[in-house]
Design a protein around this nucleic acid. Structure first.
Lengths: 343, 343
DNA sequence: CGGTGAAACCGAACCGGTTCAGCGCGGAGG
DNA sequence: CCTCCGCGCTGAACCGGTTCGGTTTCACCG
C-alpha cells in the first residue's frame, strides 16, 4: 500500500524526475505526447503530490490558520464561528490550501500558537478574529512577518488588511427603525468593551442616538454569556425609567433575556421590543421570533480567506467590507407601548 | 526575518547538523555540555522545527483530519460539532499534532477529500463522524490504509476502532422516566434513518417500549432541520390518538417544535411532554426549558482523538465508550395529562 | 551546407530535517 | 603496551518534490 512518488512515475515512463514534475504541473518543457503519457501513469497509480515535500521545496505550507479563543461553552452555542468556517472553506474550496483550526483557552495561549505556527512554518498566514482594543496580536504577527488578515475593523493600519462588516451602519438602521416605532428609551446590551466590534457598535449607537435625539439611550456591558444577558435585561427593566426596546449584541443573550423578561411578567413586544445581533436559526425558533440583524457571515469568512490568499501570493491587498447587512423584522419588535399601558 | 534552521544552529555552535538534531531531540550521542550550548543557541535564535521537513523525513504529517458533511445552515446552529472540536483540541493540546478541518457539501465530496488527504500525505489519520448505515467511508479508508477512528457505534469491526456514547441505555432511561410519569403514547422524532446513531436510538426505543409494554410508541423520521421537526410534531399531535410525550433527536427540532405546538394551542408539559437529545445552552434558554439527554460531547471528542493518536502510533486500540450520559429534567416534561383534561 | 535557436529532456542541487555508518580518541582491561 | 569498547561527533544519504544549467536533437534559414 505504498504511495507512489514522482520517481516511480519517472521510472515507469522512462523519463527523469524533472520531466515528470514539469508534466504534472502543466509547465512547458515536455512534449504533448510524454505529458499525456505521464499524466495517464500518474492517474493510474493514484499519485498525489506530497504536501510535505512540496512545502519543503517551495517554502509554502499550503495552509492558513485560525485561532479561536473563547470558552468552549460559549463557543458551542454561537453559530457565528461555524458559519464563518463554512464560508472560509467554501472559498478555499478544493484548492491546495487547507484550514488549520485551533481553540485556545486564552489570549496568551493564542499568541504562543501563532509564534509556534510561524517557527514551524505550519501556515502561510493567519486570520485574526475577535479583535480587541489595543490587540497585542497585531504587533506580534507583523513583528514575525506573518501574513495576516484581520476580521473586524476597518483598522486603518497599512500593514494589516482587514475585512469588515459595516456594523456601524446597521446599528444606525436599527435605531432608525426603533425610533420610527416611537421608541425613545433604548438600551444596547453589548459585549465586553475590550472587543473592538463592541466599541464600533457602541460608538455607532451613541452617534445614532444623538442624531435621533434619543437622550435616554445607553449601553450596558456583558460577557456575552446567556446569564449575563438575561441579568442585564432584568436589571434595566426593573429600573426607574425602563427602556422600551433592547438591542442585544448576540442571539444567545437575546434568547436568554426573552425568558427572563417573560418571567418578570412583561410581554415582548407588548412592553419591550427586542432586536438581536446576528440572525440565526435560533432567532427564528423562539417565540416570539426575534427581529435581528443578519450579517452575511459566510461571505465574510470567504472574503477574509480570499484576501489572505492574495496577501500570501504577494499581492497588494486593501481593506474590504461587506455592506450587505440586513435588518430582519419579526414578532419581537413593535410599536412603543402607549403610556399607562404598561404592566 | 529569515527563520533559522538547524544548519544555522550547527554553524553557530561549530558542530554538525547531525549533532544538533540529536541535541534538540533529547537523544544520546552528544555530551551534556554541547547539548546545553545547542539548546541555548536554538532558544536564542527562536528556532522551531520545520513541520514540512520533519514530515518529509519521518513520513508523519503531524495532523489529523475531520470532515463534516452537513449543509452549512444546519451545521451552524448545532452546538455539537463545536463542542466536539473543542474536546479534540483539548486532547491534542499543544502537542505536535494539529487538526485539519473540512466542511463538505455532500458524501461523495467527503470521500474525495479523504483520498486526496491520503495521496498528499496531509494527515496521519482521520476521524469519521456522522456514520451512516453501510457507510462507504469505512471500506474506503481501510482500502487506502488510512488510520481512522469512528465516532459512533460500537461497530464490531476489528479493523476500525470506534468511540461511542451509550445512546441505547440513555434512550431506555428516558422511556423509563416517561413511563414512570404515566406516559404510554410516546413518539420518537428521529433523524434520517440512514444515520447509524438514528438506528441505534430507534432500536433501543423499540426495545425499551416493548419492555415497558408501551404498545403505542412509535418513531417518525425527519431530516434534522427545524422545519421538519416542527412539522413532524404538528402531524402526530393532530392525529387521532396524539402522543403525550415526544422525544427529539436534536435540540433544534425540539425548540422548533415547541413553537409549533404552542401555536396549536397546546401547552408543554400540560398537554405534551418534551425530551430533547443533546443538552445545550439552547435547551436551557427556551421557555419552558427543555428536559434533555446530556452527553459529554467534549470528552467524546477527546476520547476519539486520543484513540486515533494511539492508533497512529501503532498501538492496538479497542473500541471505547463514554457511558456518562445523563438525563437532565427541566420544565418541559411532567406527568401525563388526566384523560378528558386535554384541549 | 553550416549555423542557429528552440524544444525536449537529463542530471544534480536544493529545501530542512532524521538517521546511520564510520572515525578519532580516551580510558579500562588483560 | 596493546587491544577493545564506547562516547562524541562527522559526513553523507535520504525523504519527495521543484528548479535550473546543460546537452541533445531537429527544423529552419540564409
Amino acid at each position: 500500500m505504498k504511495r507512489p512518488t514522482i520517481t516511480d512515475i519517472a521510472k515507469e515512463a522512462g523519463v527523469s524526475k524533472g520531466a515528470v514534475s514539469y508534466a504534472l504541473n502543466g509547465r512547458p518543457g515536455v512534449s504533448h505526447a510524454t505529458r499525456t503519457r505521464i499524466l495517464a501513469i500518474a492517474e493510474q497509480l493514484g499519485w498525489g503530490p506530497s504536501s510535505a515535500a512540496r512545502a519543503l521545496s517551495d517554502g509554502k505550507a499550503g495552509a492558513i490558520g485560525m485561532v479561536i479563543d473563547r470558552p468552549a461553552d460559549v463557543l458551542g452555542v454561537e453559530p457565528f464561528f461555524m458559519r464563518l468556517i463554512a464560508g472560509i472553506q467554501n472559498e478555499l474550496g478544493s484548492g491546495p490550501t487547507s484550514l488549520l483550526l485551533q481553540v485556545a483557552p486564552d489570549h496568551d495561549t493564542e499568541l504562543g500558537i501563532h509564534r509556534r505556527w510561524h517557527a514551524e512554518r505550519r501556515v502561510d498566514g493567519v486570520l485574526l478574529v475577535d479583535l480587541r482594543v489595543d490587540d497585542e496580536r497585531l504587533d506580534a504577527v507583523t513583528a514575525i512577518g506573518m501574513p495576516a488578515v484581520v476580521l473586524g475593523g476597518p483598522l486603518d493600519r497599512s500593514d494589516l488588511p482587514s475585512a469588515w462588516t459595516d456594523d456601524g451602519a446597521a446599528v444606525g438602521e436599527v435605531l432608525d427603525y426603533l425610533a420610527a416605532l416611537g421608541h425613545r428609551r433604548v438600551v444596547h446590551v453589548a459585549g465586553p468593551p475590550e472587543f473592538l466590534h463592541t466599541r464600533v457598535r457602541t460608538e455607532a449607537f451613541v452617534a445614532a442616538a444623538r442624531r435621533l435625539d434619543l437622550t435616554e439611550a445607553r449601553t450596558v456591558h456583558t460577557d456575552y454569556t446567556d446569564e449575563s444577558g438575561a441579568s442585564a435585561a432584568r436589571r434595566v427593566l426593573v429600573s426607574g425609567e425602563p427602556p422600551t426596546a433592547l438591542i442585544f449584541d448576540n442571539d444567545v443573550m437575546a434568547v436568554a433575556a426573552l425568558g427572563a423578561v417573560q418571567e418578570l411578567g412583561l410581554s415582548v413586544p407588548g412592553d419591550v421590543s427586542f432586536v438581536a445581533w446576528d440572525d440565526s436559526v435560533l432567532c427564528r425558533l423562539v417565540r416570539p421570533a426575534l427581529t435581528a440583524v443578519r450579517r452575511p457571515v459566510a461571505d465574510y469568512g470567504a472574503l477574509a480567506a480570499s484576501m489572505l490568499q492574495r496577501l500570501i501570493a504577494g499581492e497588494d491587498v486593501q481593506d474590504a467590507g461587506t455592506t450587505a447587512l440586513m435588518l430582519v423584522t419579526r414578532a419581537s419588535s413593535g410599536a412603543v407601548p402607549r403610556p399607562g399601558n404598561r404592566r
